[in-house]
Simulated assay, not measured.
Amino acid sequence: MSEAVGIFGGAFDPPHNGHLALAGEAIDHFRLSRLLVRVVADPGHKEVETAPEVRLALAELAFAMLDEAEVALDGFARTVDSLEALDLADPVLLIGADELAAFPNWTRPERVLELARIGAATRPGNDLRDLERVIGSLPRPERIELFPITPHAISSSGIRERIGLELPIDELVPAAVAAEIDRLGLYRAR
C-alpha cells in the first residue's frame, strides 16, 4: 500500500454506516495507508446536538473497524486552517459531491487545493455536469478527482429524528455506536 493519507472530517453527530462506507471505498480507491478522521469540534456551517467529546467517542467506536483510521478532534472550524495545522505532504481530502458543489464558497478554496487533493464521492443521481462545471471554475482542477461510491440513504439528521421518534437505528449505525447512543440517552429529547 502507498503512503497516501486521507482526511475525512465532519460533525459526525452521529457517525453512521454511510460515513464508514465512504471511508472504506476511499481507502480502496486512493490506496490510503492512513485515514485521519477529524471530528470537527465546532463546525461553522452547521448546528450540532452533542458535545465534541461525545461525538469523538462515537466516531472512535464507528471507525474502529477500519485499520487505517485514526480518529481525533479537530479544533478548527475551517478546513483550510485544519490542513495548514496538519502540514501533510499532499493528502487527499475526502468530501461528498454536495460539498464539492459548494466548494467555491469555502474559506480560501484555492489554498485548500494547494494543501490537499480533493477526492469527491459521487452517487447515482449526482449531476456530474454541474460538478464538472464547478471543477472547471477552480484554479487547480487537476487536484480534484471524482470517485463513485455505493449509495446509502442515511443521514445523521435522519438518525437523530428516528431516535427522537423511538424508531430503531440498528441498520444505520455500527452496533457499538447504537449501544453507546442508547446508554447515554442521546438525541431523545427532541
Rank of each mutant, 00 (worst) to 15 (best):
E99M: 15
E84F: 00
L61I: 03
G18N: 04
H152W: 07
D81I: 00
L186I: 07
P52W: 11
L115A: 04
I169K: 02
G9W: 07
I149A: 02
R143V: 14
R117A: 13
H45N: 12
V39L: 02
S33A: 15
L165T: 03
L94F: 05
E166W: 13
A21E: 15
E145F: 00
A23V: 05
L138S: 03
V134D: 04
I154M: 08
H29R: 10
G185K: 07
L94P: 05
I159E: 04
A57C: 00
A179C: 01
I95Q: 09
V173L: 10
P14T: 03
N17S: 10
E68S: 14
L66I: 03
P139R: 15
A121I: 01
V177M: 12
I27K: 14
A189H: 13
A57W: 00
E68C: 03
P104D: 12
S155Q: 10
A97T: 12
E99K: 12
L113Y: 01
L100G: 06
A153F: 04
D182G: 13
V92N: 00
L165V: 00
E68V: 06
A178H: 03
L20K: 10
V40G: 02
Y187R: 10
A85W: 00
W106Y: 09
E145C: 06
F12Y: 13
F30Q: 08
F147I: 06
I27T: 11
